[in-house]
């Protein structure tokens, strides 16, 4: 019998949202995992903090589904790291996710703004 995931941390992102954010960031240029988290935190002015524990499973999942591809490159610091970039399917998925998020936001806004 399945149970609802019972994570109550308010900072935890909806799963779909995290995927969407990662796809968005990798769409710009190939980027390694740690930089993805940094980038999201930076752009959102520290409002979105991605924990390592959520980031790496998400990357693995996205790569596995063929939305991201990874290759080993040298970072600016001269170390070897896995760099992620978006595949064509990933690009399509980004569009799907973005549309879904917009619909969700609109729907919630409707509820929140309805005056009886």
């Amino acid at each position: 019998m399945s149970r609802q995931p019972e994570k109550s941390s308010e900072a935890e992102l909806l799963q779909g949202t995290l995927d969407m954010l990662i796809l968005k960031v990798t769409a710009l240029q190939p980027i390694h995992g740690y930089a993805i988290a940094q980038r999201i935190q930076q752009i959102s002015r520290d409002a979105l903090q991605i924990r390592q524990g959520s980031l790496y499973p998400a990357l693995y999942r996205l790569e596995n589904r063929g939305w991201l591809k990874a290759d080993w490159r040298t970072t600016e610091g001269g170390r070897e790291a896995k760099f992620y970039s978006l595949t064509p399917q990933g690009r399509r998925q980004l569009a799907v996710e973005t549309a879904g998020w917009r619909r969700l936001c609109d729907a919630i806004s409707l509820v929140l703004e309805t005056a009886e």
């Binding site: 969407m20 954010l21 959102s44 409002a47 917009r102 969700l104 609109d106 919630i108 929140l112 703004e113």
Partner: peptide, 24 residues
Amino acid sequence: EHSKWAEFVNAIGLVMGKDPGKAE
């Protein structure tokens, strides 16, 4: 919760670039 939600939507909007959802 309301203001937390607004902040959240705003933050996502920043990452997603222009017009990420016209959430308030």
